[in-house]
Design a binder for these strands. Sequence first.
DNA 1: TTAAAATGAGAAAGCGCTTTCTTAAAAATT
DNA 2: AATTTTTAAGAAAGCGCTTTCTCATTTTAA
Lengths: 332, 332
Amino acid sequence: MTTIYKVAERAGVSLSTVSRVLNGRKTVNEALRLKVEQAMKELDYRPNSLARSLASNRSDSIGVVVSELSTPFFGEMLQSIETTLRECNKHVIITVGHNDLAQEKEAVEFLISRNCDALILQVGALDDAYIQELNQNRLPVSLVNRCVEGLEEACFTLDNETGGYLCTKHLLEQGHTEIAYISGPSDKTDAMQRFKGHKRALEEAGITFSEALYYEGSYQEEDGEAGLIHLLESNKHFTALVCGNDWMASGAIRCARARGIQVPQALSVVGFDNIVVARHVFPTLTTINHPIADMGKMAAKYVINKVYSGENMIQNLFAPSLVIRDSCSSQR
Amino acid sequence: MTTIYKVAERAGVSLSTVSRVLNGRKTVNEALRLKVEQAMKELDYRPNSLARSLASNRSDSIGVVVSELSTPFFGEMLQSIETTLRECNKHVIITVGHNDLAQEKEAVEFLISRNCDALILQVGALDDAYIQELNQNRLPVSLVNRCVEGLEEACFTLDNETGGYLCTKHLLEQGHTEIAYISGPSDKTDAMQRFKGHKRALEEAGITFSEALYYEGSYQEEDGEAGLIHLLESNKHFTALVCGNDWMASGAIRCARARGIQVPQALSVVGFDNIVVARHVFPTLTTINHPIADMGKMAAKYVINKVYSGENMIQNLFAPSLVIRDSCSSQR
DNA sequence: TTAAAATGAGAAAGCGCTTTCTTAAAAATT
DNA sequence: AATTTTTAAGAAAGCGCTTTCTCATTTTAA
């Protein structure tokens, strides 16, 4: 293995000088710098990143905790995080938290033990206090799809309220007035914000929100089916359905078809997130685009600024946008 | 920061002894071991993994190159790799190769520079010679979904030929005799093996393969559409279609619907891989299950055996299985 | 009982770098 | 021309561990 010593020897300089060249310090004579670079090339020298890290107390690695690796939604996020960080020669250690408290904690501990310089968290179970503590006493933290008090600058979130508003607004514009809503779990901020946007749109149109047209699920596909059945049984008529995410929308559409309810002719459905599957359900799903890749990239840039003194522009709040496909029809 | 010195001091032993306890060497007196463990607990000692790696010349990290992170298929694989390795306290550094030669090489170089102990590769562009060289001169390599000569033990593949056979066999059993085939690219071994299985099934049934019922795509969704159009234009009648993967099957089904061809009544379609989307296309897709998560896990176990002297049972070839859904109908 | 073998633990030398401290030489100031 | 300031490069001390070497002590064999 070629070490810095051998390079120094070959170039006829001290290893300090080689180190300086390596780290781009400019307090080194141009002639020597060239000699050193030449020697490095000749010996095919590759610095040992472990030794560097040990000596400089910096690992150039960023830990990521993601709830699931097997869904494309977070895959997109990871991909942009990885790309952004590797451009800066940092690397990403990925762990999976499964939205489970114990697993998330273990993942974080693991990443700390791996000497990560910072953490990017997409977690649901860890409480705010833990995260604040972590950021304060251990290492810089960045959060995707979650807002933690006191860490606003490190949080990258979608404007869910506006997203929810856009869903319902779209249906209203199509002439729908009886609009049901299947929500995500009420203990999730994003689910509640989406719902809030829905109500704002209704209000704006002068429509009173009816509890009978509301169902709370937990973001799973089955909740879409269960929700639709529940809503149908309430016997309150509706011509459109907003779902808290695409999975539930997919479940609802499947359930509607099974019951002979034509989508979109008899029922318009809107989802949320624009996951890959939204393009493949039948009919293809009108939904809200969630720019998760951009958000991941931004979280990565934030970390670069914070830990490696980068100077990227940072944006914390992301705008949702309506993607119109085939699952809605006009009611006029 | 608590170091091994402080632990040694507190326990009243030398740092060698602490190191021995840390590494589970049994040449240490039980009483001392307890004292050391006590001291570690009291000081909340966490070994510095960088220092360990530098001294032991082992990073406990495995590099993974995957073609895409944003598709759930490889996400499943990564998830099982990560889980398996973290159970052994190893960590995973993930990079993306995009099936592009330059990017794949860069990813490998990057992982080497990160002192990975081994590599798990899911790559399409790197040539066999490069991989052999890598494995021989640099660090142990394991391959998923690819077979490299001389590295058979490190390769984890699906029995694609049998998979292709199963597709067509299923259609034949349903009474179909005119079966079209949309293949993946002919320079990919897996695509050709799947196709080979198809032909074997035909042959076994005494049916002559017809070039007119064959189209070569490149595994993309659009190829399913283009392929179906091509096949329809050939004016050779067929009642069933086998696609080289689920994406192309999805494209073909969509195209069929757009042209008023009822699936499965007028056309039965079979896919391959059983990706998540296969459950969401309409009608839901009959396909071949590709146990990619199991394969990833096995690759991880292989690495554990190879580098960390584990003793897992290893299986290199994986069996495909038919998943029957709604996209095929009987022709009788 | 004595010599030989086995066991357990400490001392010390790295692992390959970064970084601080020092000093020699060159440039600028008077 | 003498002094001060600046610049450039080397020496050396770590970073926090592992591991080899060594030696004192205990166990076993003769």
